[in-house]
Simulated scan of single mutants.
Amino acid sequence: MSQRLILATRNAHKVAELRAILTASGRAGGTALELVGADAYPTTPDVKETGLTFAENALLKAHALASATGHPAVADDSGLCVDVLGGAPGIFSARWAGTHGDDRANLDLLLAQLSDIEDPHRGAHFACAAALALPDGTERVVEGRLTGSLRHTPAGTGGFGYDPILQPEGETRTCAELTPDEKNAISHRGRAFRALTPLIHELVG
């Protein structure tokens, strides 16, 4: 018997990435999990990300979907935090250029803002909060991060968002040049959801 677990995103890239992460790290016994994206419930309204932190936004989305569907839901909120910008774009990463989800515009604007910043000062990290919410209101949230530095020009065609300019510590490639398995092994999202997986099995089955 399987338990349906809803991934609170309509971003196809994230659905695939999170499904791979949770499947790979959730093979221990218990109830089998049927992982589906929010598109399986097309009448569920989008949730406004009104929180002031990644954790608050992740919990808002997870609770909204759990309440609307009657199934446990997981959600994440993530973004790029640039040292010299005081942690920005942060929670505004997906709409840094003004239009939510315009990856190229966001990336181009950020590179323009950092055009005069030299390599030693281009430190940044991806941050992710992953949340689990049950229909009864139970909640858990964990966080993960991937630290690195920002390239001056994009490189690679994989991934999404700011992946083409973030080069992880110890790497010579950007996140967009890594294979999906390589990226999942070290990514902020991978770390957060691997930490959340034992809680999913404890609370969901």
Results as ranks from 00 to 15, higher is better:
A62V: 03
L52R: 15
F160G: 04
L22Q: 01
A75N: 06
G51Y: 07
V47P: 05
G144A: 01
T50F: 02
D136A: 08
T9C: 04
F54Q: 08
G90Y: 09
G161E: 09
A38L: 15
V15N: 08
G161L: 06
T138W: 01
A176N: 06
L110D: 14
T23Y: 06
P42V: 01
D103W: 14
A75H: 03
P89A: 01
E202M: 04
E202W: 02
L146D: 03
E17Q: 09
P164W: 04
L85C: 02
D108F: 00
G86V: 13
P180F: 11
F160L: 08
G148P: 09
L111I: 13
D181E: 15
V84P: 07
C175K: 09
G87I: 11
F126I: 06
L146M: 08
G170D: 02
P164L: 04
H188V: 05
A131C: 11
F92G: 14
A124T: 09
E177A: 08
E177G: 05
K183H: 12
E139T: 15
A38D: 09
H13V: 06
E34Q: 13
E171R: 14
D76T: 00
V47N: 06
K14A: 10
D77H: 07
R104S: 09
G70L: 11
R95C: 10
T147Q: 00
I165W: 11
T44A: 15
S115K: 15
H100V: 00
